[in-house]
């Protein structure tokens, strides 16, 4: 029996009668993580990883009816055994493991296999059927180790600071910003943040993640330090009047999409840092293989190439139609739409 099927409301578990990351309002929703395309408002009951509770309450409202589980802790609902396991994507992100009558399914949500210091590292979970994302499911997407990317970012910041030019780094406010922050060298200069970013930093800090000190530009005592600073801002801030206070700044964008020259140029920034919170092609292959699953469902992004590839590798692979953002351009648009919040 299929433990997860696609319904108009979202991915549904028939024996358990609950949804995973539904996009329409439902009674019971298991939320893999707090990104806008996965965590939506209006469900009656929420279930998430304990590490993600702070984020969900921040984004969906403090008063949502939310039950949280520690990673690895399991509950039973209508005979379905459910547990959550780290997905390494953002703080509190989880894979959902479902076990029913000896059959095990894992829904990955979004995941990244490389460990970083801002969330629990991805854990491989054995299963019969694996529901994988495929945001970067083409072999052109292969990431550098993150310490190399951090070195590049710090070097870019340092050389701008040497020329007394602010460094504005655009990245998604939830997840990416904190990961970037964790790799910055605070000795180079002050780290300024946009109003959409700081509340999420706060949640991370409260969850015990060590991040360097940040401040709002408005609260900055010595404005002459602006030229030495690094500014973390959401993509939506690009081109707004808020940017004017940084003078003749250098800008950059941190995202997996920066891998392609075309998207890099379309962003119109000086630098593109290829840093993603999703698995790259080898990462996806490794993760899928490690589950031992013989059946694979693919959601997100490059679905068709991934399905075809997995079939050619001898797996029983199929696509799940979801509303998680179908193609590159849309995913990109989704992600930037995700970052409202007023600048400060």
């Amino acid at each position: 029996m299929d433990l997860v099927i696609a319904r108009p409301e979202g991915l549904y578990c028939p024996p358990g009668d609950f949804y995973i990351d539904p996009w329409r309002q439902v009674e019971r929703a298991v939320i893999t993580h707090g990104h806008g395309d996965h965590a939506r408002t209006g469900h009656q009951h929420y279930l998430s990883a304990a590490a993600g509770e702070g984020i969900l309450r921040k984004r969906l409202g403090a008063d949502i009816d939310l039950l949280s589980l520690e990673y690895g802790e399991s509950i039973n609902h209508h005979g379905v055994n459910l547990s959550l396991h780290p997905a390494g994507h953002v703080l509190g992100s989880a894979q959902v493991r479902l076990e029913y009558k000896g059959e095990v399914w894992v829904a990955s949500g979004d995941y990244k296999v490389e460990a970083d210091g801002t969330c629990a590292p991805f854990e491989s979970v054995r299963c019969h059927t694996f529901i994988t994302e495929s945001t970067f499911g083409l072999p052109i997407y292969q990431w550098q180790p993150q310490n190399e990317i951090f070195a590049d970012i710090n070097q870019w910041w340092q050389s701008n600071a040497d020329n007394n030019r602010a460094s504005v780094l655009f990245c998604y406010a939830f997840g990416k910003a904190q990961r970037v922050l964790s790799g910055l060298n605070p000795h180079i200069g002050p780290i300024l943040v946009h109003g959409a970013v700081e509340p999420l930093n706060q949640v991370y800090r409260e969850a015990g993640v060590n991040l360097p000190a940040t401040q709002y530009v408005s609260g900055m005592q010595d404005k002459s330090q602006i030229g030495k600073s690094l500014v973390l801002a959401p993509p939506s801030a690009q081109g707004t009047p808020w940017m004017k206070r940084f003078g003749d700044y250098s800008d950059a964008f941190a995202s997996g999409w920066m891998q392609l020259r075309g998207t890099r140029r379309r962003r119109g920034v000086d630098r593109g840092f290829i840093m993603s919170d999703h698995a790259d092609w080898p990462g996806l292959q490794k993760a899928i293989q490690a589950t031992g699953a013989e059946r694979v469902f693919v959601t997100h992004g490059q679905i068709h190439p991934m399905v075809r590839w997995l079939c050619e590798q001898g797996l029983d692979a199929q696509a799940f139609v979801t509303e998680y953002g179908e193609e590159a351009a849309e995913a990109e648009a989704n992600l930037s739409a995700e970052t409202e919040g007023s600048p400060i």
Binding site: L138, I140, L260, R261, G262, W309
Partner: peptide, 16 residues
Amino acid sequence: WLFEESYHAVGDLAET
């Protein structure tokens, strides 16, 4: 076919 898919996503042969 995977090369072609990749080329289509990239849009530039040398870059692909």
